[in-house]
């Protein structure tokens, strides 16, 4: 039972950043902009979030400090994503290449900036006093309380909330459906009076905000200082997005599956039944990728990727 609680708790450290960042990617890609730059948004916003935590230290206390830093990271995420927006919406640039430029730019800039700021080292220290020992009331529920509501971080709940709100916005609101139309058939959408450019901008702003928060959510539970890297989780989120076929509910499943494999790959030696199987940890580590490949190959007939993603919008093609 102890081990179950342990797995549940650590599962969240993988699950939440993957879920949030892949939701960020979903907004962008459903509107028709391929977002290969998720990693750069994470790296960049995470730095600003950590800096914000330092600035607010001693000014505001407790969870409020974390929430303000999350918002700030989100706003900085928007700034970086706007570069992608301008290049791919206004300048009709190749979206993949712009994103790759961002991926090269962000880590280099962050190292440079942090060194200038600190006059030397680029490591930004994080004072973490955000662990919630027990959530009142919810923490007393048997089993579930122990699994998800003790020794937890507020980012877990914010992450879930982001997912639920995003799912509703994309699937149930006028805005979301029109945004998806821009990613499927922008010419048709335009002919019905939808301003494609405006909707794509809106989608990227939301994507930047969510992705930015995801960057900070990644680092908070796992490190005591930030060294301008997020361990490639932006790219991992991208594969979650593809495995989840750009749809909310499958995305949730995909993120959970990836996170579970990651958790087990690192903790299987503590689970007697798995340890006795004698499988190498490489098996668990590679499992999500192998299944993604197989799933994509098997379902390629029913490809759900947004039809117009990756193509600059050209009104004259109507």
């Amino acid at each position: 039972m102890e081990m179950l609680y342990f797995i549940a708790r650590y599962f969240m450290y993988f699950f939440i950043p993957l879920l949030v960042v892949s939701v960020s990617g979903m907004f962008s890609e459903r509107s028709g902009i391929i977002h290969m730059g998720l990693d750069s948004v994470m790296v960049w916003s995470c730095m600003w979030g950590v800096l914000c935590l330092q600035w607010l230290d001693g000014v505001v206390a407790g969870q409020l400090r974390l929430i303000l830093a999350l918002l700030f990271a989100g706003v900085m995420g928007i700034l970086l994503t706007l570069l992608l927006a301008v290049a791919s919406i206004n300048l009709n640039a190749d979206q993949t290449i712009v994103a790759m430029a961002l991926n090269t730019f962000a880590p280099a800039f962050c190292i440079f900036f942090a060194r200038v700021l600190q006059d030397g080292s680029e490591h930004l220290s994080i004072r973490n006093d955000f662990l919630i020992e027990k959530v009142p009331v919810l923490g007393d529920i048997p089993v579930i309380g122990e699994m998800f509501f003790t020794r937890t971080y507020i980012t877990n709940f914010i992450g879930i909330a982001i997912f639920i709100i995003s799912a509703i916005v994309i699937n149930k609101t006028r805005f979301g459906l029109r945004m998806c139309a821009c990613g499927e058939n922008p010419q048709a959408a335009e002919s019905l009076g939808v301003n494609v450019q405006k909707y794509r901008y809106a989608a990227l702003i939301i994507s930047g905000f969510i992705g930015g928060m995801g960057g900070l959510m990644y680092i908070i539970p796992v490190a005591t200082h930030y060294s301008q890297t997020v361990g490639g989780y932006g790219y991992l989120a991208l594969s979650v997005l593809i495995f989840g076929q750009w749809r909310s509910i499958p995305l949730l499943g995909a993120a959970a599956f990836f996170a579970l494999c990651k958790t087990i790959a690192n903790a299987y030696s503590g689970i007697p039944f798995l340890a006795n199987l004698g499988l190498p940890s490489a098996f668990f580590k590679s499992l999500p990728f192998i299944i993604t490949l197989v799933a994509l190959a098997a379902t390629s007939k029913y490809d759900h990727s947004p039809k117009a993603s990756g193509q600059p919008y050209d009104k004259s093609q109507r």
């Binding site: 796992v222 490190a223 361990g231 990651k262 903790a267």
Partner: peptide, 19 residues
């Protein structure tokens, strides 16, 4: 396999400590 911090390392180290 890396010289950087990551959730993988936290999980493994914590599992070791727990056990």
């Amino acid at each position: 396999g890396t010289f950087d911090a990551s959730p993988d390392i936290v999980t493994r180290a914590s599992e070791w400590y727990t056990n």
